[in-house]
């Protein structure tokens, strides 16, 4: 078991003929992901890495039975690409594109909610169920099958954490990059519940950062609904207020959204927060041995 994706997930790649789309399609296939179709308007009939290309997501889904989509199109077109995927009937949409306008994301998340379609991202590295399926741009080789579920607003910080976990002998059930934008798809609460319900996940790592109050809300949710051990890390303790720290959503505005508030919120509900990334594996082992 795992959450969201597994070896049966059939993926369509939107923007498969682009530089990034093509490159990462090869990587995903090499990892073992079942990439069944690509979409590039006007390029239907071609193939990329032996994957058939269609003009629309609808055609791709009808012909191949794809049930998940990953989006590599340029940010100005990504909002529409998300809508197209949901309209075509996939169950999960993963948007990698960085720089999607917030109002486009509001429109997209609203539509997907109505359709009952799950969205990861935008501006995210994707997700992976190790040794089964990888959707996105994650470096597959550092992940190992296991019992730790992980969710994170950051890409490379996740890789650092996963590397530490794997080196410490802690494999992962599923790792989800939820993205660094202010308005995004699935967030902590939904994923916490999925990990809680997944029999193969025994502990959960939550990697947050400054901006917004999603971590504070997650802490409340953990207190009320999550019985599995959770450990957290918050990036941005030294970030100055009023500046966007790379991610569109990573900003301390009007004095709120600071790392200190988030750390305090987790500690208040008994979730240990690592001061340094390197402490995460030890914290998990301690909780699992309790």
């Amino acid at each position: 078991m795992s959450i969201l994706i597994n070896k049966n997930t059939k993926l369509v790649v939107q923007g498969i003929t682009g530089r990034d789309g093509s490159f990462h399609t090869a990587k995903m296939i090499a990892y073992g992901t079942r990439v069944v179709a690509g979409v590039s308007p006007g390029k239907g009939g071609q193939t990329v890495h032996d994957v058939p290309v269609f003009n629309t997501v609808e055609d791709a889904v009808k012909a191949t039975g794809a049930n998940a989509s990953v989006i590599f199109v340029p940010a100005p077109l990504a909002g529409d690409a998300i809508l197209e995927a949901a309209d075509a009937g996939v169950e999960l949409v993963v948007c990698i594109s960085e720089g999607v306008p917030t109002l486009d994301m509001i429109k997209a998340t609203n539509y997907l909610k109505k359709k009952g379609v799950k969205l990861i991202g935008a501006n995210c590295p994707g997700l992976i169920t190790p040794e089964e399926s990888m959707i996105g741009i994650l470096p597959g080789n550092i992940f190992k099958k296991g019992k730790v579920g992980l969710m994170s607003r950051s890409g490379t910080l996740t890789y650092l954490m996963v590397n530490l976990l794997t080196e410490a002998g802690l494999g992962q059930s599923t790792c989800v990059g939820i993205g660094g934008d202010p308005v995004a798809g699935l967030y902590y609460q939904e994923l916490l519940q999925m990990f809680q319900d997944d029999p193969d996940t025994e502990a959960i790592v939550l990697i947050g950062e400054i901006g917004g109050d999603a971590e504070e809300r997650a802490a409340q949710y953990i207190k009320q609904h999550i019985t599995k051990p959770v450990v957290a890390f918050i990036a941005g303790q030294t970030a100055p207020p009023g500046k966007r720290m790379g991610h569109a959503g990573a900003i301390i505005s009007s004095g709120s959204g600071t790392a200190a508030e988030k750390i305090a919120a987790f500690e208040a509900v008994g979730v240990p927060v690592a001061k340094l990334p390197v402490e995460i594996p030890q914290l998990i082992k301690k909780l699992l041995n309790k």
């Binding site: 950051s154 890409g155 890789y159 650092l160 990697i207 950062e209 890390f233 303790q237 030294t238 720290m245």
Partner: peptide, 28 residues
């Protein structure tokens, strides 16, 4: 993506989250 701060350790990192974590570890 560059934001100037007032310290003296120049950082070059790939990824926003890792860049923030790097600053935090320096401060730590």
């Amino acid at each position: 993506t560059y934001i100037r701060l007032d310290g003296n350790i120049g950082c070059m990192v790939n990824g926003a989250g890792l860049a923030m974590a790097t600053m935090d570890v320096i401060k730590h």
